[in-house]
Design a protein around this nucleic acid. Structure first.
Length: 739
DNA sequence: CTAGGGTTAG
């Protein structure tokens, strides 16, 4: 038998007029031979050869033979849509099969909607009618582009064409409704199927898993079992994915034994799903064992394993996996970058990003950019963030919701609120995350009223707020003292927006009330909370007590907070200072001893500043920076100049998170933000703004110093502290000294 | 002669 592994001339039956008239082969046999050759074609050249032959012999005029050739042209591994279309146009009267084939080819091509245009041609211009094979392809196209209205129209047409009850049509509708987010319709279709097959169940199970209801997927699986439907390997993939999402190792293990007992065929995809379940559920031993057993591995296998180590924060092992990958792809790089970024290691994430850029064959994608922008936001790497933004523009990368939110978030957190607004205004469509990012940005910069306005504009745009939106709005209210607005929105959260307040929302309201001086009200609010107050709730109250110098309440809040978070360093230091202020010296020494014994230390103040794309970090009292001497020289000069302009160091805030050692640093003006600002003065020129990021709250003295420097040195200074931004300009701060 | 459901990174 002839097989064509490489392109060779074909031995085609000869033209009837040329063949020996006495030769016994009939036309029928000749066409059978030609058609069997079509099936064994290995490339387009061979196919075209047969095509030419068929035209010459007239075989192409036979609808069956022509459709056979066309199907290979459109669907084989070496298919060419261009060529297939030309073949199709030559078919005199394409039958339904040929139309279906063309629709199928387009539906799984790069532009699925083109299959709809073919369908319209079929309906309007041909004698062929759509049948039960036609609709699954079209519905698949609708699913691909997530067009609910298209899916609904096709659903209606399928019913009119009397194929609405066909199980293939119904199954593709389930898939389509899920991908359009219309879960109710998907369920309705499912319940109307008379004879559900395993694919019907699988479509439901994977639909629920992918749309964020893994628990429902597991329920369905149990129901499927109780109805004695035999699960397939695709069922297993879906169920394992559900287990991975809800971190249910026990159920996941049961699924694995089910697979063994029922001899479900374990292919690569299923093995990968098992691996993912083990890693996500935290059983790295099982994962390692499976990984070592797997004979065949693909990039999914490697990346899943990489992520498994990253989850355990074993970055060395994760890195080893990346290094061992035969063909590293962007997904694997993204996994490492995002692992660092999401575990509070943004600098490491940026290092990996820089390394990735040196790889010639790996193209960044939207996910790379989202993770990296998020890392930029954390460290305040505005220059790199800007570079990524221009990269996005230059390469025409689409601003989807993720990328848009990430850009807004990056610009906001790096202190460039105007740029954040530009991005927000530029995009045409905004989802809840884009709106929330913008509201959050306004909140950080103390634009409370604008944030609240934005919240209402969002409703006008028919975008429903979520829990994050409310957190950001409350945060905005808090920084701007908008007590009434916050209270009124809080009261509507559940009744009007259907969002059950969580502990972070309660903490926000306590913060709003407390900051504005309504300490009693805040306490009452905590007392009537329907859920037990969390550490962040007490933390918010404590913060308010600090601002308003309420010692007794602070002591209570501190005690509650330490019950919930025994290793909260700030609360310890603060409590010891409270005791000191109240003369409870025994309690002070007890607490200090406790801290020494348990090795609890106050997180050191740290400020950073980006110069020419490099992040420079300063700890308080730091002299490790290469330009340390010059920085201190500048600091001395600044302080002298400030003093001669009437500045007096502020040494007596009532409550501060300062430990004994820091007292000395405080008196010597060694706070990290002062060092970073001085470094900024040395290494940049006006009118460039000095942007500093601090890990803790900016202290009162540094705040006054920054105000004066902005005036006397005529420099804009932008400081991001743990909670918000301070824009210092002409001796004023954007926070109006309310923070 | 045709068809549907699947795993990794935000």
């Amino acid at each position: 038998m002839a097989t064509f592994s490489t392109s060779q001339p074909l031995s085609l039956p000869r033209h009837p007029s040329l063949s020996n008239p006495n030769h016994p082969t009939t036309n029928n046999e000749r066409s059978r031979h030609t058609i069997s050759l079509i099936d064994r074609c290995a490339d387009l050249r061979q196919l075209k050869q047969i095509h030419a032959h068929m035209v010459r012999t007239g075989l192409f005029n036979d609808p069956y033979s022509a459709s056979k050739l066309f199907a290979i042209a459109a669907l084989s591994p070496f298919a060419s849509l261009d060529y297939a279309c030309k073949v199709f146009d030559q078919i005199p009267q394409p039958n339904s099969f040929s139309w279906n084939t063309l629709i199928r080819a387009y539906a799984s091509g790069p532009d699925p909607l083109r299959s709809i245009w073919v369908f319209l041609d079929m309906v309007s211009e041909s004698q062929s009618y759509p049948n039960k094979y036609t609709f699954p392809f079209l519905i698949k196209a609708a699913a691909e582009v997530s067009s609910l209205s298209l899916g609904q129209s096709l659903h209606g047409m399928a019913i009119k064409s009397a194929v609405g009850c066909d199980v293939f049509v119904a199954n593709s509708l389930i898939h389509c409704y899920f991908s359009c987010g219309d879960l109710d319709s998907a369920c309705k279709v499912f319940t109307t199927i008379q004879e559900k097959d395993v694919v019907s169940w699988n479509s439901m199970i994977t639909g629920f898993v992918q749309k964020g209801s893994p628990d429902k997927a597991l329920e369905l699986f149990k129901k499927m079992e109780s109805e004695d439907v035999k699960a397939s390997h695709v069922t297993m993939v879906g169920v394992l994915s559900a287990c991975a999402k809800i971190r249910n190792l026990e159920f996941g293990r049961r699924v694995c034994s089910y697979i063994e007992e029922n001899r479900v065929k374990v292919n690569l995809t299923l093995a990968n799903a098992m691996l993912d379940m083990y890693t996500k559920c935290g059983s790295i031993e099982d994962a390692k064992r499976l990984f070592d057993q797997m004979e065949e591995k693909d990039n999914v296998t490697w990346t899943t394993m990489l992520d498994g180590f990253a989850i355990l924060e074993d970055y060395e092992a994760a890195r080893d996996v990346l290094n061992s990958m035969p063909k590293k792809d962007i997904v694997a790089w993204n996994a490492l970058i995002s692992a660092y970024e999401q575990n509070g290691k943004p600098n490491e994430a940026l290092l990996v990003f820089h390394e990735l850029q040196l790889q010639k064959n790996t193209k960044l994608n939207q996910i790379t950019l989202v993770s990296t922008l998020s890392a930029c936001a954390q460290v305040g790497a505005l220059e790199l963030g800007r570079w990524i933004h221009s990269y996005i523009k230059k390469h025409g990368i689409r601003l989807n919701f993720y990328v848009t939110s990430a850009l807004i978030h990056m610009y906001s957190k790096c202190g460039d609120l105007e740029k954040a607004r530009e991005v927000f205004d530029f995009v045409e469509k905004r989802d809840v995350f884009v709106w929330s990012a913008m509201i959050g940005g306004l909140a950080m910069h103390g634009c409370g009223n604008e944030a609240v306005d934005m919240f209402f504009k969002m409703q006008e745009a028919n975008v429903k707020p979520n829990g994050v939106t409310f957190t950001n709005v409350f945060c905005a209210c808090s920084h701007s003292g908008l007590v009434d607005e916050a209270e009124s929105l809080f009261n509507q959260m559940e009744s009007s927006y259907g969002i059950v307040p969580e502990d972070k929302h309660y903490a926000c309201i306590v913060d709003v009330l407390g900051r504005s001086g309504y300490l009693e009200k805040a306490v009452k609010f905590i007392e009537v909370m329907p859920i037990p107050p969390s550490a962040s709730v007490w933390g918010a109250l404590l913060g308010a007590c600090k601002i308003h110098a309420n010692l007794s309440l602070a002591e209570m809040a501190c005690t509650r907070l330490l019950e919930l978070e025994p290793r909260n360093d700030g609360a310890h230091v603060l409590l010891s200072n409270i005791y000191a202020k109240s003369g409870k010296w025994e309690s002070v020494s007890e607490l200090r001893k406790h801290m020494r014994v348990t090795g609890l230390k106050k997180e050191p103040g740290c400020s950073s500043i980006e110069i020419d794309g490099m992040i420079h970090e300063f700890l308080s009292g730091d002299n490790t920076h290469p330009m340390s001497k010059k920085v201190y020289g500048k600091l001395h000069e600044v302080m002298e100049r400030l003093k001669s302009n009437g500045y007096e160091p502020e040494m007596s805030q009532v409550l501060q998170i300062i430990d004994e050692e820091e007292m000395k640093e405080q008196s010597l003006n060694l706070h990290s933000e002062k060092l970073a600002i001085c470094y900024g003065l040395i290494s940049t020129e006006a009118p460039k703004a000095i942007r500093v990021i601090k890990n803790l709250r900016v202290c009162g003295d540094c705040h006054s110093v920054a105000k004066l420097v902005s005036q006397l040195y005529d420099r804009e200074i932008i400081v991001r502290d743990r909670y918000r931004f301070h824009h210092f300009r002409n001796g004023q701060c954007s926070c109006n000294d309310f923070w």
